[in-house]
């Protein structure tokens, strides 16, 4: 299976990942190589196999509903690129 430059552009857009146009081809080649590796999987019949999402065969633990966190905005926003009056700022969002 091989991916085209166009495929890579589409995936990169979904992932919001900027890729230099001169690198697209090399990514297409690398990803195609990975997909080739994965075709091995299709050789094995897995019809009645239950997918395994997680190595732990355990139930989710549930937390008691209590407020444990205090306001820590100053500390959190000290590492933010752009804030104003407690808000994180981003370029204008158009809905």
């Amino acid at each position: 299976m091989s991916l085209t430059a166009d495929d890579v552009n589409k995936i990169a857009h979904l992932a919001r990942l900027g890729i230099d146009s001169q690198d697209i081809k090399s990514y297409a080649k690398d990803l195609s190589g990975m997909l080739d590796l994965m075709t091995q999987m299709s050789e094995l019949n897995t019809d009645n196999v239950e997918p395994m999402a997680h190595p732990m065969d355990q139930a989710q633990r549930l937390r008691t509903d209590v407020v444990t966190e205090q306001n820590n905005r100053e500390k959190f926003q000290a590492i933010a690129p752009q804030v104003d009056t407690g808000l994180y700022l981003v370029p204008k969002v158009i809905e």
């Binding site: 209590v66 407020v67 444990t68 966190e69 306001n71 820590n72 905005r73 959190f76 926003q77 407690g86």
Partner: peptide, 29 residues
Amino acid sequence: ATKSKIFSGASTAYGAEPNTQACAVDLGL
């Protein structure tokens, strides 16, 4: 109508100053 958030211990009370009830988990640190 829980007191704390679904995945963190931050308060769900309405109307607080911006980002004062967003803890590390809510901020996706």
